[in-house]
Design a protein around this nucleic acid. Structure first.
Lengths: 228, 228
DNA sequence: CGGAGTGTAACC
DNA sequence: GGTTACACTCCG
C-alpha cells in the first residue's frame, strides 16, 4: 500500500499483458530529478530504452507509435510532429560555490523563484489547454478538491489556481477557513506581505515535527487517491 | 617474472609514493572482458572506487583531476568539475499531457514544491557551510539587505532565510513595514493561511502590468548592484 | 560479477 | 537546447 513519489511501477496498457512500466526519479547528481522509465517483461527482464525493447520484441509488436517515456501509443510519433513535451524533468540547480551572499539572494529572488512561477504557470496553462482539446478528457476533480471553492467547472478551478499563482504579489483574498488536507502540504511558503528575512529561530525538534507533518499529509493524500 | 594477462599490478605515478594500481580483467559473465581497476595504499589497503579513495585521502591529495580507471591525471576532468560548479541548470518541466487534474494537483503539491523547497534548503545550507569553511570568504551583504533586519552577522541573515523557508507552513512574523526593492520581485507566492485556490480573475492588461513591475524591480536591483 | 543509478556523446 | 540511448561507476 506504499505509493512512493520517487518510484512507481504499474501495468502498461500499451504493451502486451504482463508487461510493466516503472518510473524512477533520479535523486542525486547533476541529473537529479530526471525521470528514468523502465519496462519489465512478464518474465521480469528489465528494459531501459526503446531500441532495446524493439530488439527483444521483434516483429511481434509494432512499437513504431509507442512512446517509451510515456508508456502509451502516441500517433503523433508517426507524423513526427512533436509538439508539447510530455516528459517531466524535475531537475533543479544544486548547491553553489563561489557565490557571495548578495548573489545568493539575487539568485533566489530573481532566478529560482521567477522560473519556478513561470513553469508553474505554463504547466497549469498547458493543463487547461489539453483539457480544452480533449486530450486529457473530462476527468473530474475529486470531491475534496472541488469542495475548496464554489466553482462552476473544473477548468475554472485550475484556471483560478494558475491565476492566483500569477498575480502572486497581490494578496489572494479567497475563501477562508478551508483548511483541507492538501493545504497541509509543505509546498507553501513565503508571504509577500511579510519581510523576506525574518528573525525566526528553530530547534531540531521543530524541524522534525515539520517533517512528520509532511509525512502525515502525504499519507492522507495517498489514501484519498486510493479511494478516488 | 610472471606476467599474467588477466591481472597486473604496478606503481601509480599519479598517486603518492608507495601506492599501487592493479588491473583485473573479468573472465566471464555479461561483462566479461571488462577491466576492474583497484588501488593499494602503502599499507596494503585495497580501494575499489574513486569516492573510496577520496574519502581515505581527504585533503592531503587533490584527486579532482585523477582518472581512476586510467590511473593518471586528466586535465579534461578539471574542466568538467569547474563547469559543473559554474553553471546552473534552470530546467523545469514543460506543459503536460495525459495528466488528470488530480494528478496535476498532486504533482504540484507533492513533487514540484517539495523538491523546490528541498533544493532551496540545500542551496542555503551549502552557502552557510561554504561560508563557515571560508570557501566563500567574508563577503558582506550589501547595506540594503542588511537593513532588513537587526542581525549580528551575515551568516545569521542567511541562516534565518533558510530557516524561514523551512518552517514555511508556520506564519513568518518578522519586522513589518520593510518593503525593500528586493521585496518587489515576483518570486513570492502562495500564502499558507489563505485558500490554495482563489476565485481571482485577471485581464491581459493585468498580466502585462505585472510583468512590467517585474522588469522595473530587476532594473532597480541591477542599479543597486552596480552601486554596491 | 551484477545491476541500480548516474553521466554524457550523439542526435534531432 | 533537450532527449535518447547506452556506457560507466560504485558497491553489494
Amino acid at each position: 500500500m506504499n505509493i512512493s513519489i520517487e518510484k512507481k511501477r504499474s501495468d502498461c496498457a500499451a504493451l502486451p499483458k504482463g508487461w510493466q512500466r516503472e518510473e524512477v526519479i533520479r535523486k542525486s547528481g547533476l541529473s537529479a530529478g530526471k525521470v528514468d522509465v523502465y519496462y519489465y517483461s512478464p518474465t521480469g527482464k528489465k528494459f531501459r530504452s526503446k531500441p532495446e525493447l524493439v530488439r527483444y520484441l521483434g516483429d511481434s509488436v509494432d512499437l513504431s507509435c509507442f512512446d517509451f517515456q510515456q508508456g502509451q501509443i502516441n500517433t503523433m510519433l508517426l507524423c513526427k510532429a512533436k509538439k508539447a513535451r510530455a516528459q517531466f524533468d524535475y531537475r533543479f540547480p544544486h548547491s553553489c560555490h563561489n557565490f557571495s551572499h548578495l548573489c545568493c539572494v539575487h539568485y533566489l529572488m530573481h532566478v529560482l523563484l521567477p522560473i519556478f512561477l513561470l513553469k508553474l504557470k505554463t504547466f497549469l496553462q498547458g493543463l487547461t489547454a489539453c483539457d480544452a482539446n480533449g486530450v486529457i478528457g473530462t476527468t473530474s476533480l475529486p470531491k475534496y478538491i472541488k469542495s475548496l471553492g464554489p466553482y462552476t467547472s473544473d477548468a475554472t478551478t485550475i484556471q483560478s489556481l494558475a491565476t492566483a499563482l500569477h498575480v502572486s504579489s497581490q494578496p489572494i483574498t479567497g475563501q477562508s477557513g478551508s483548511k483541507q488536507v492538501i493545504m497541509e502540504s509543505p509546498g507553501v511558503f513565503l508571504n509577500p506581505d511579510q519581510p523576506l528575512i525574518a528573525a525566526v529561530t528553530i530547534t531540531k525538534d521543530d524541524l522534525r515535527r515539520q517533517e512528520e507533518r509532511v509525512k502525515r499529509a502525504r499519507l492522507r493524500l495517498q489514501e484519498a487517491l486510493a479511494a478516488a
